[in-house]
């Protein structure tokens, strides 16, 4: 998307979310559109919403679903809270690390995948579990992970 188109679109989005007084959703929408919040994006959002740049940066760095660095097209979020820990979430992390040759927090070289470690995702009955983008995958085994990742 060209810069001009993007800023036009941001303006439209801003008007929509301002009506609902919903800054967080606005930021999330921008995040979704651009993949991450670049310094440029943060500046735009701040000036559109009429708050300081620091405020938006502070907001972005507070929430784990928002990133100030580029993410992969698919974000893999592996839960490692107690129930998943009991069901060997380390196996899940290791399998993905090996497959993509990345560390948690990293992005694959082709920019297709990011791996993040997160807190409880509320799928403890299906532990170990992970989210890929917004989709939930539970009862993971090395084989199952392989199939899921192939399907993406």
């Amino acid at each position: 998307m060209s810069d001009e188109n993007l800023s036009l679109e941001l303006e439209k989005l801003c008007i929509h979310y301002k009506r609902h007084d919903d800054l967080l959703s606005f930021i999330k929408k921008v995040h979704e559109k651009c993949g991450y919040l670049s310094p440029e994006n943060i500046k735009n959002v701040a000036s559109l919403w009429n708050v300081s740049v620091g405020e938006i940066y502070g907001l972005t760095t507070f929430y784990v679903f928002l990133s100030t660095k580029p993410l992969g097209q698919n974000v893999v979020r592996v839960c490692r809270s107690t129930p998943c820990y009991l069901e060997n979430c380390d196996m899940v992390i290791e399998t993905i690390e090996k497959k993509f040759n990345i560390r948690p927090g990293g992005v694959t070289e082709d920019g297709k995948f990011s791996l993040q470690l997160v807190s409880c995702i509320g799928a403890c009955d299906q532990a170990p579990a992970m989210l890929i983008n917004d989709e939930l995958y539970g009862n993971l085994t090395p084989g199952k992970i392989e199939t899921i990742l192939k399907g993406l």
């Binding site: 943060i42 620091g54 502070g58």
Partner: peptide, 20 residues
């Protein structure tokens, strides 16, 4: 003036200026 904001969270919290 609103120069400062709070960034990051938990133990990494930091008083930031603009994009840190």
């Amino acid at each position: 003036a609103n120069v400062y904001s709070v960034g990051y969270r938990g133990h990494s919290s930091k008083i930031i200026v603009d994009n840190d």
